[in-house]
Design a protein around this nucleic acid. Structure first.
Length: 933
DNA sequence: TGATTCACG
DNA sequence: GACGTACGTGAATCAG
């Protein structure tokens, strides 16, 4: 058939398919020889799904998969830095590139690439040819660089979201029509492709300018007319760079091709060729499925393992499509009872709650969703309001909801049933909500924590990330229901029909992730980490967060006023010194005064071209210049006031009078917790003035606060892991470890130790934990770099085990792509193979992770055991600050609690790990945190 | 939204 | 030989 009117050309962006397939699947290998083939498997799966969907009136008559030619393109001749930021393709992906070409040909689809050009140029040329011939074109890609081609019968199809992008779609994305997209891109640049553009101008501003002036050329010619001085200057000065950027983003639609549109006609695959290829790749499930589909016998696949299929074999999981319309809305007890019966029958159910907000202490329950098996999910609306559209909303409950109490009465037995596993994504949230309604959810599994145990360091563990990555599915965005900004509504105002699709989908995704992750935990050898360090911590943290800590508003308020007064004084003094008013809070303005108006030397600029004025620079200037000293004074108070005395008051819960932080269990790659809303892990302590903020953290009447903290835990763990006998002995003997290090290094007897020498040794000890470098140590101690290097050399001579540990850890990370704590926690280090400055970062992080991570594991173990240890005592564990636990206890039982808690903390490593170094815990008590610490 | 600064371990 | 760096977090603020 000659290509012409009535024809429909599909152009598939092959590279996008490959990368998506690579990231969507675990790193599968071919069983017989270990060849990595995960991306090929995913690629074939996607091609097959594409073919399945290509029917009906909109079907393609012609199709091609277009690839990038490896190596440089003509754009590198225009600009040698083009795409220079791109990291090299992952090692195990490289051998799969040619295989994806083979796969395309096996499916009998035209497969094109041309040396010196990018796939986008070929796509552009073909799209133009097809349009000129009177046909339609669909570009299967989500690459924004291709949007310039849209219009006049050319559309894009985003395969991730299954969304078509037409003129309006382009307008939405770029603020201009397709014909002006390159102009906007030329101005905005692209950090991913390293297209420079015009510095300081983003897509929004670019669109504004292009719309005002009509075109890039017009804009550049009339740049003098622009009112904003900075913008005008940029456009005039960077004209060449902008024009070059346009050449970089402009696709070439007039390439010489050695094939024609007619060569791209859709053809059926040759079953024999296709089967042979799939069998060669040893795809078992996929081969069988496609064989069934085209009605042939699947070929035998050689099986080198006589035991047959193993988990993790080269195969793709069956994918069931998401069908929001199939989710059930549960409106009465009978329907709910049916779902509960199914959950009991299976012994597990995915659960998700919908509420009026993100703060579990304040949000109210709006509905509950359940999922029994992939695709089979329901939503139980409980507190939706009607009249979501009217301005003030309505307090009337929407029709067709069962009473909340009735639903909870039915659900409570199964949610608390030991024999039914409740699966959630971030279950701590849901468990806290349920707890406020009198339901103690247990036992649980948590897909967020499963991902964290397996994939810490590789990516985030939020549901959207996991769904896209592992299910190839983009969940309905919550913003599409709630809106954003000022007009944002709460979930109870969402119409029930919309809520069903969103909420049930979340439970559905959670269940699918769980099914995928459960076997992977074993394969990645982190089941023990998940079951002993992650899952059991959930109820412990939930309890601590719900208990909260009492904070005295009056104390904070008084301090706030005092700070404000002092700051006003500093401010006046600064204006005086500068000779004019300025914004003290603006580093740029402070820098301009110091380094321009006052003409001081040594100022550095940040990468954005502003003056940089961090505290250490100001400290050096402060001895000579009052101005720098006052800025430091001002900044300290500003920090204390805004972040602590002011913000903290807003976090006091109106009913409990206490502050309820939230711990994030999967936030820090090393296994540490983090604390937010508010962060109670960074309450000031180092400065005298700041420490007084801790006086506002108080014990309830008749009680005291206890603080127990591990002494030097990271150094002890370093001594243990690196096997440094001298350090270990020093800890056993209870010596001052920094003084002892100093004595060893500088040959000073302990009796003659000076604070200065000890300080240096202490800095080195900490430096070692961080993956020491001469530069870092020099900066910290403010000594010449050569001197710092001498210290390090001497340190390594005295403690040779340290260097061995560092070298071996780096080697291990390079070989495996992760490092481990003593308890088996994995911290992935994907950047370890990077080149350039990033290599250093990755290496130091890899050295630090086992030390910081093991310490984090130890205190987690202590926390998990603590509730049982203080059972029966009138005590609560309230806060964790990495190496410190804070308790609140009846004053007369403080000593009992200290004894038990200390015992738990000091023996927390056992029996899983025997430490040859003792862990010791210091304890304090008082009416407030300042006294207890 | 990203950069800068600074609080903690 | 130059490059550019101490490890891990969260929050407030400026600037665009």
């Amino acid at each position: 058939m000659t290509f012409g009117k009535g024809c429909h050309l599909h152009l598939i962006d092959g590279s996008a398919f490959i990368f998506r397939a690579y990231h969507a699947l675990p790193p599968l290998t071919r069983k017989s020889d270990g060849l990595p083939i995960g991306a090929v498997a995913g690629f074939c799966n996607m091609l097959q799904r594409y073919i399945d969907g290509n029917n009906g009136s909109d079907a393609a008559t012609h199709v091609a998969v277009i690839f990038d030619y490896s190596g440089k393109s003509f754009r590198n001749d225009l600009y040698d830095q083009y795409k220079a930021n791109r990291p090299p393709a992952p090692e195990d992906l490289v051998p799969q590139f040619p295989l994806t070409r083979e796969a395309t040909r096996a499916f009998n689809i035209a497969c094109e690439e041309i040396e010196g050009y990018e796939a986008d140029d070929i796509i552009a040329t073909l799209a133009h040819q097809a349009r000129d011939a009177g046909g339609r074109v669909t570009i299967v890609s989500s690459d924004k660089d291709l949007m310039q081609l849209v219009g006049d019968g050319v559309e894009m199809l985003d395969p991730m979201k299954n969304k078509r992008i037409d003129r309006e779609g382009v307008m939405e994305k770029f603020g201009v029509g397709p014909e002006r997209v390159v102009d906007v891109q030329a101005l905005a640049g692209d950090s991913v492709d390293n297209v420079p553009g015009a510095p300081g101008i983003g897509v929004k501003t670019a669109a504004l300018l292009i719309n005002e002036y009509g075109s890039l050329e017009e804009l550049l010619d009339r740049a003098e007319e622009i009112k904003q001085p900075k913008r005008r200057q940029t456009l005039i000065e960077k004209r060449d760079q902008i024009e070059m950027s346009k050449k970089l983003v402009q696709l070439d639609c007039h390439m010489e091709l050695d094939f024609t549109l007619d060569d791209l006609e859709v053809r059926d695959p040759d079953p024999e060729v296709l089967m042979h290829f799939l069998a060669e790749m040893e795809f078992r499930t996929l081969t069988k499925r496609i064989a069934d589909q085209i009605g042939v016998e699947p070929p035998a696949i050689k099986d080198t393992d006589p035991r047959g299929a193993e988990p993790g074999e080269a195969d793709t999981p069956e994918e069931l499509p998401f069908k929001p319309e199939d989710y059930e809305c549960v409106r009465d007890a009978a329907a709910l009872a049916g779902w509960i019966a199914q959950a009991r029958e299976r012994g597990y159910v995915a659960v998700d709650t919908e509420t009026t907000g993100l703060d579990e202490m304040r949000a109210d329950l709006v509905g509950i969703s359940l999922c029994i098996e992939p695709g089979k999910a329901c939503y139980i609306p409980l507190a939706h309001k009607d009249g979501a559209d009217d301005l003030f909303g309505s307090d009337n409950l929407a029709e067709g909801q069962m009473p909340l109490d009735e639903a909870l009465d039915l659900l409570k037995p199964v949610l608390e049933d030991e024999s039914v596993l409740k699966i959630g994504q971030n279950m701590k949230y849901d468990a806290k909500i349920f707890a406020r309604y009198g339901v103690d959810v247990a036992p649980i599994d948590d897909t967020m924590l499963m991902s964290y145990a397996m994939n810490a360091g590789l990516h985030g563990h939020g549901m959207d990330t996991l769904s896209e990555r592992y299910l190839g599915h983009t969940p309905i965005p919550i913003k599409s229901l709630l809106g954003s900004g000022k007009s944002q509504i709460t979930f109870d105002r969402v119409p029930v029909d919309d809520a069903v699709k969103y909420a049930a989908e979340d439970a559905d995704i959670t269940l699918r992730l769980w099914q995928l992750f459960k076997p992977q935990l074993h394969q990645t050898r982190v089941t023990t980490v998940y079951e002993t360090l992650e899952r059991p911590l959930v109820p412990v943290l939930a309890r601590m967060e719900m208990d909260g800590i009492k904070v005295d508003r009056d104390t904070l308020s008084r301090m706030s006023n005092a700070f404000a007064q002092k700051m006003a004084g500093f401010e006046a003094e600064l204006y005086e010194l500068a000779g004019h008013e300025f914004n003290v809070q603006s580093p740029a303005q402070v820098g301009a005064i110091l380094f321009e108006e006052m003409g001081l030397e040594g100022g550095k600029k940040t990468k954005t071209g502003q003056w940089s004025t961090p505290a250490d620079v100001l400290e050096d200037l402060a001895t000579e210049h009052d101005f720098a000293a006052r800025v430091l004074d001002y900044r300290q108070l500003q920090k204390l006031k805004s972040t602590y005395t002011d913000a903290l008051q807003d976090h006091i819960h109106p009913e409990t009078g206490r502050v309820h932080t939230s711990y994030l269990q999967s936030g820090a790659n090393t296994g540490r917790l983090s604390s937010n809303d508010p962060n109670l892990q960074n309450i000031p302590v180092r400065s005298e003035e700041g420490r007084r903020i801790r006086e506002a953290f108080v014990a309830d009447e008749g009680k005291v606060l206890l603080s127990l903290d591990y002494s030097q835990i990271e150094l002890r763990i370093l001594a243990e892991i690196a096997g440094i006998d001298a350090l270990k002995q020093a800890f056993k003997d209870g010596l001052d470890i920094h003084a002892m290090t100093a004595s060893e290094m500088f040959d000073v007897p302990l009796g003659e130790m000076t604070p200065e020498i000890r300080r240096r040794a202490k800095a080195i000890n900490f430096g070692v934990i961080y993956g020491i470098s001469a530069f870092g140590l020099a900066r910290n101690l403010r000594i010449p770099r050569a001197e710092a290097q001498d210290f390090i050399t001497r340190y390594f001579e005295r403690f040779p085990g340290i260097r061995t540990y560092m070298d071996e850890t780096k080697e291990f990370a390079k070989e495996h792509g992760f490092v481990k704590t003593l308890f088996g926690r994995k911290i992935n280090t994907p950047e370890i193979t990077a080149k350039g400055p990033r290599a250093g970062f990755a290496q130091r992080a890899a050295i630090n992770a086992p030390i910081q991570g093991t310490a984090a594991d130890v205190i987690r173990r202590a926390m998990i055991r603590m509730p049982a240890a203080i059972e029966g005592l009138p005590a609560k564990m309230l806060l964790q600050v990495h190496d410190e636990l804070l308790f609140e206890v009846d004053a007369d039982r403080a000593e009992d609690v200290i004894a038990r808690a200390r015992e738990v903390m000091e023996s927390a490593a056992a029996p899983a790990v025997h430490l040859s170094v003792p862990l010791t815990v210091d304890a304090g008590q008082g009416a407030n945190w300042a006294e207890a610490h």
